[in-house]
C-alpha cells in the first residue's frame, strides 16, 4: 500500500515544484502549501504503515500494545502542521504587502525595482 501513497507524494511534490516556478506570487504560495502537504505525508510514511491502531496505552495497561502505529512521525507531523500554518500566514501577508507597495503580482517586476 506504500506504492499508492508514494505516487501521491510524487504528484504533490511535482505540483509544488511546478507552482513554485511560476511568476505569479499567488501561485508561489499555493506551491508552498503543496510542498508542506507532500512533506508531511513523506514524514508520516517514514514510520511503518503496517500497524494501524492509534498510539495510545490502553486503560489498565502500562505499556502500549505491539499493534499501535509509530507515534514519532505523528508527533513530528503535528508540529510541522502548526508551524506550516505560521509560515503560510507570514508568506500570505508578505505577498499582500508586496502587492501593496509594488502594484503587481508578477515576481519578475521585483528585480527591476
Amino acid at each position: 500500500m506504500e506504492i499508492i501513497l508514494a505516487i501521491v507524494i510524487g504528484v504533490l511534490y511535482a505540483a509544488g515544484v511546478y507552482l513554485l516556478l511560476r511568476r505569479s506570487i499567488v501561485k508561489l504560495i499555493l506551491g508552498l502549501i503543496f510542498f508542506s502537504h507532500a512533506t508531511n505525508l513523506l514524514v508520516f510514511l517514514a514510520g511503518s504503515l503496517s500497524k494501524v491502531s492509534p498510539p495510545f496505552v490502553q486503560e489498565g495497561q502500562k505499556v502500549a500494545q505491539a499493534s499501535v502505529a509509530d507515534p514519532l512521525p505523528q508527533a513530528l507531523v503535528l508540529t510541522s502542521l502548526v508551524i506550516g500554518f505560521g509560515i503560510t500566514a507570514f508568506a500570505l501577508v508578505l505577498i499582500y504587502r508586496f502587492y501593496q507597495s509594488s502594484g503587481t503580482v508578477d515576481f519578475d517586476q521585483l528585480k527591476e525595482d
Partner: peptide, 17 residues
C-alpha cells in the same frame, strides 16, 4: 517547468519506495 516538476516528483516517489 512541467518536465522539471515531473522529474522531481518522480524521484521523491522513488525515494519513498
Amino acid at each position: 517547468d512541467g518536465i522539471i516538476a515531473l522529474v522531481f516528483g518522480g524521484f521523491m516517489t522513488a525515494l519513498v519506495l
